[in-house]
Design a protein around this nucleic acid. Structure first.
Lengths: 192, 192
DNA sequence: TCCGATATGAGAGTCAACTCTCATGTGAGA
DNA sequence: TCTCACATGAGAGTTGACTCTCATATCGGA
């Protein structure tokens, strides 16, 4: 039952191949213009097998592999919402840098056609947002449905989304650092 | 060539019928679960005709009919980004209240399944965002690609999005007023 | 080495968005 | 009233995501 057998390793390798080839194609011709059949062919599997690895094409661009932001949030000391969220992003990205960026995945994710990526992920985000609000409210000593919490979380997510978009268009940018700078700016009241 | 003929009036009526029936079905069974064929049947037109009115099912939920935010922005006096944007939202919603909310459209839009509505619209938003950034930069006396502008616009849009979501889930809420309150909170530095 | 569980491929099939063509009907202007 | 432009319906066709079934191949344990 361990995951060390040849079978498991083979599955993991197939999974990686699918992801790698899929993102390569997305980069070349865009998300919508890439068919599952093409991905399957590039990964040298049958289309049927593709769906045994991913329940839907959408799931390829899921940010499930994103660093556990909520976890990082829970580890933050109490403080005002924006400060707590900024710290959480820093923590989460520190973990990501070591693992995912270094592994070369992150670049592929960002290089993928961005609007579609956002679109596919937004469908899953309401739950995440609620969770974030709850933890932040706890750290700030407010109720989870306090408008001030909602506003702070919204502002942070908006700022991060904008940087994210800019990052996707400029692979030379140091994303995590830029996000931290932007959140510092927000923390200081968006001064001019 | 005027738009006062019987032909034009008929087309307008058909268009309204399609929208009304579509949103009714969306509300009843969700966006994804509603097929174009069902919409066409409810509106008493053929599926082919549906596509003569809307190039894609997605276009039904486009916020193209949203108040001209960019226009309202251009009418704002110079000032810091958040202040300018807050004023623009107020102006834009004032126009909307009289026309669209009263016409009963707004409620239908908000009552529609929210995730898919957001998803469909996000695809069209990059252009809007860039436009907003440019105007705001002009009003604040900065370059359009100034990170501070980007951050402010991101924060405002994030805050508005959160209120919007809450509004969709609580039709009793006074959306425009709540958005204005939220932006005032952001303007004052998200104080606790 | 043999057997059972499981991964895969092949291929047919479903479903829905969207396109195209062609025939018909109905306003608009002369 | 006549005629032309155009809106519509009918219906077939295309595409791509996703499902199902069944035969085959391969791994893992006995």
């Amino acid at each position: 039952m361990g995951d060390s057998g040849l079978r498991e390793r083979k599955k993991a390798r197939t999974r990686e191949t699918i992801l790698r080839e899929a993102f390569r194609l997305f980069r070349e011709r865009g998300y919508a213009a890439t068919t599952v059949e093409q991905i399957a062919e590039a990964a040298e599997i049958s289309p049927a097998t593709f769906f045994r690895y991913f329940p839907a094409k959408e799931h390829l661009v899921a940010l499930d592999r994103f660093p556990p932001l909520v976890e990082a949030l829970a580890a933050q000391p109490p403080g005002p919402p924006v400060t707590v969220l900024r710290g959480a992003f820093r923590t989460a990205f520190a973990a990501l840098s070591a693992e995912e960026i270094a592994a070369g995945h992150a670049r592929e994710v960002f290089a993928a056609t961005v609007p579609e990526l956002l679109v596919a992920n937004l469908r899953r985000s309401p739950g995440l947002i609620r969770e974030v609000c709850e933890v932040v409210a706890g750290r700030a000593g407010c109720a989870a449905d306090d408008p001030r919490i909602r506003n702070a979380v919204g502002a942070v997510l908006g700022v991060v989304a904008m940087v994210w978009l800019a990052w996707a268009g400029d692979t030379g940018m140091d994303g995590p650092a830029e996000i931290d700078r932007a959140l510092a700016h927000l923390e200081s009241g968006l001064s001019l």
